[in-house]
Simulated scan of single mutants.
Amino acid sequence: MTLDPYAARPAWRDYGRSDLPIPLAAALSAFADHGYHGTSVREIAGRAGLSVPGLYHHYPSKQSMLQGLLEMSMDDLLWRSEQSIAAAGPEPIDRLDAVVTTLLEFHMYRREQAFIGSSEIRSLDADYRPVYTAKRRRQQQMVDEIVVDGAQRGVFVTGDPYDTGRAITTMCVGVSIWYRPDGRLSPDELVDRWGRIARDTVGYVGDSTRPEITSPQIVRHRDQGDAP
């Protein structure tokens, strides 16, 4: 899976400035630094340049800020995944490349949001948690459907498509923990290399009409910002 650095990027690959409202951007920053339970409303208000009553005018509680932040983040990821898969066409390998690219780029370019989205599920109120986890299941279902389709067509050689799909998603989600912009691999290089790993994971057998994928050089050292 080789990305053309000169090709115009579609909307689902466009990661400009985050459009989070100022209170949610402040909450994200504070949660990333101190965790949900270690962050006070006063801390969020200070980062947002608001008084505590002014912050409550926008969001009535710290919990509502966490919910709003996770809701916007997950909706963004779902939209990008749906768009990328639809644009990829009917072939399972093209759809796999698309959704893996989406997951990897989201967890690089929106890594704080992605990290909080995974680590603070435990902090969600019980009545909202099922709403949020349903969105995460929908994201996983997109990956599963592609892997199952490829296995049924015989282009993916895996006897456990659902476990394989979960392994690929887990691999991509984990990027938000260790990725750093100044690391050894650029975003496009990381997408290309880990996209190949995803293909290997599903056991993609290829076909005669597609170009060969050259195995990347094995790197035996670890720089700051690389995966553990």
Rank of each mutant, 00 (worst) to 15 (best):
D4T: 15
D4L: 15
D4M: 15
P5Q: 04
A7F: 13
A11Y: 08
W12L: 00
W12F: 14
D14M: 11
S18N: 10
P21V: 10
P21G: 10
I22F: 05
A30P: 00
F31V: 00
A32M: 03
Y36K: 01
T39Q: 00
V41W: 01
A45K: 07
G46T: 13
A48D: 03
P53F: 04
H57M: 06
H57W: 05
P60Q: 03
S61L: 14
K62Y: 06
Q63E: 11
S64F: 03
G68I: 11
L70E: 01
L70T: 05
E71L: 15
D75N: 12
D76T: 10
A86F: 04
A86Y: 00
G89I: 12
L96D: 03
L96F: 05
V100C: 01
T101L: 09
T101D: 14
T102W: 08
L103S: 02
E105Y: 11
R110Q: 11
A114H: 02
F115Q: 09
I116F: 06
G117E: 04
S118H: 08
V131T: 15
R136S: 07
M142G: 00
V143E: 01
D144S: 15
G150T: 08
F156L: 13
T158W: 10
G159L: 11
D160K: 10
Y162Q: 13
A167E: 04
T169I: 12
P181C: 07
S186E: 07
V191L: 15
D192F: 02
W194E: 10
W194S: 10
D200K: 12
Y204N: 02
Y204C: 03
Y204I: 06
D207A: 07
I213T: 06
T214F: 05
Q217R: 14
R222G: 10
D223C: 15
P228K: 03
